[in-house]
Design a protein around this nucleic acid. Structure first.
Lengths: 333, 333
DNA sequence: CTGAAAGCGCTTACAG
DNA sequence: CTGAAAGCGCTTACAG
């Protein structure tokens, strides 16, 4: 392993001169020696030791990406998460940051993950609302959350207009003549992304004289799609439309429908959320609410990078727009 | 930030005693003081500085996951990659390793990524066959490749029986009466995962008296699915079946088909590869060749962990089986 | 069982 | 413009 010392010895200068030359502290070292040293370093295949630098300068260039891990399988099974993560890695690597990925279950793992490597910043995917206060208190580094509905002040967050998304879902069903509809998502508590989508959905339905019945709200965290579908279609009157809180969940219903010989949209119309594949449709013909995941990743990283550059810069919150993408999973009644 | 020194001061012992107590060097420190120190460390919220440890002990517990980046969008857009990565992260974190993700374009970035943080091992996703020799030479740490067809000796690799997969794809089409079929994948060179799938496919067809015509081999790296589909159906005689080299590509054809009002399987039968969602089907009703991605991740990590534990352990190569999953995307002719 | 010294590879801060 | 000293937080290796 080549170190500064080795280069210094070979160049006949001190380590400090090498360090300065390599770090481009330009006017602090004569350009000739600098050039000579750089060539030498290159030739010797020098690669700086990040641990040593991190120790000395207290700046690791490591960004932690913290993903909420659940019991419901691998987080990256939800294409939203994997696509978002992929974009984040690409963007941050371009800025010469290193990315450490952590799947987190308990709060305590967060601080450990951040501190032990002296992460300079962190991005959060998934719901951390109840812990945000604590996380910020324990980790005085730039943190950017996504999809948070926490009311903690001065936090950076990038979210989308979930409520509006719910409204759009209701509208498209209503405009197609649906009067009895259902909602399904991984519900937990009455705040957060899913709750907001439901709220927008429910409010719009009520305003239009078709209130969402309480027993047409299904929690997929507790019941598998197949059971829900079975139950739902057994109601009288049976809902003709379903708003799934994500494409991933809509997809589970497509699978369930296939098993139960239910056809979409003939027997049941479905509206999803995310529009993962963006240009194409992950589920063929799924009418869905699109969020711009690439843009979301860019904004999230943008905020983080700004804070990394100037730690005093004010916290930022952004709410991105959503959009109805009509395809063929909602039929006219 | 709490350091060993702080704890030592508070406990009235030397740093070394603290270090030993915390690292569980049991019989090297009296159990009473050890207990006392551990309690103190806990109370003070001590988190070891991994950079410092890494520097001192030359062991970072960092595993680099190196993913081939291409111009064709985000690597994690292919659900295979994201699901595999997710499993790897889960498995390795459970063993107290840290995971750094690198999207790599050029060879030189690999060594930099590994060395600068003193990674203890690395996993490779995507094709690195031409660089394996160099990578191994430059990085004397455990490396496990996936899906490699390199003939470098003594390398660790976990792959699947791609050739057999191709055979199975041909067989299911043949058994359903298809005589004119096509292949599509991101072809490049005549070796590697895609080439093998094609070879198995082509060989089986030939053996059964239905040789695959050269102009029915389409390279999706150069032509979008829609164009291919258009071209394919314009042939005389037009193929009735298509083997797509991955579910992700099959999905692109489903989308293309939707646009062009081509129905599957009525107008064209399709066989995919991967069976991403495993228990469910990513693309509804897609007949496909399943590989066990979870198992693949486990084996890959297993080999890596074994080498991490005992550096001298021999290299391992594993080829996992594949299996035909029949659903409804292949019709009888 | 416990500790003082030296070192991992780098940088900051001070001299010259 | 260049260098010697000290330190980042930890561990290895040697004494006792």
């Amino acid at each position: 392993m080549v170190t500064l010392k080795d280069i210094a010895a070979k160049a006949g200068v001190s380590m400090m001169t090498v360090s300065r030359a390599l770090n481009g502290n330009q006017n602090k070292v004569s350009s000739e020696t600098a050039e000579r040293i750089r060539a030498l370093a290159d030739e010797m295949g020098y690669i700086p030791n990040s641990s040593a630098r991190s120790l000395a300068v207290r700046s690791s260039r490591i960004i932690a990406v913290i993903i909420r891990d659940t019991d419901q399988g691998n987080p990256l099974m939800d294409p939203y998460t994997s696509y978002f993560l992929g974009n984040v890695v690409q963007i941050l690597e371009k800025q010469n940051y290193y990315i450490m990925v952590h799947f987190i279950r308990d709060y305590s793992d967060i601080t450990f993950g951040l501190r032990s490597w002296n992460a300079q910043g962190a991005l959060f995917l998934g719901v951390f609302d109840n812990e945000i206060r604590q996380i910020r208190q324990d980790n005085q580094i730039p943190l950017v959350f996504t999809d948070s509905y926490s009311n903690v002040r001065q936090m950076s967050n990038v979210g989308i207009d979930d409520y509006k998304g719910g409204c759009l879902a209701a509208e498209v069903l209503l405009s197609h003549g649906h009067r009895h509809v259902a909602f399904c998502g991984p519900l937990s508590g009455d705040t957060g992304v899913i709750a907001e989508r439901l709220k927008g959905f429910s409010d719009t339905l009520r305003k239009n004289g078709c209130p969402l019945s309480q027993d047409q709200i299904y929690n997929i965290a507790r019941i598998p799609a197949e059971k829900i579908l079975d139950k739902l279609l057994g109601c009288a009157p049976a809902p003709t439309g379903l708003f799934a809180s994500s494409d991933h969940i809509a997809w589970q219903f497509y699978n369930a429908a296939r098993k139960l010989k239910v056809s979409i949209p003939e027997d049941l119309s479905i509206v999803g959320f995310d529009d993962i594949a963006q240009d194409q449709s992950m589920i063929l013909g799924l009418t869905t609410i699109r969020q711009d995941i690439r843009l979301k990743a860019e904004q999230t990283c943008g905020i983080l990078l700004r804070h990394l550059d100037s730690p005093k810069s004010p916290s930022e919150s952004q709410i991105l727009d959503v959009e109805l993408i009509e395809r063929e999973s909602v039929r006219f009644i």
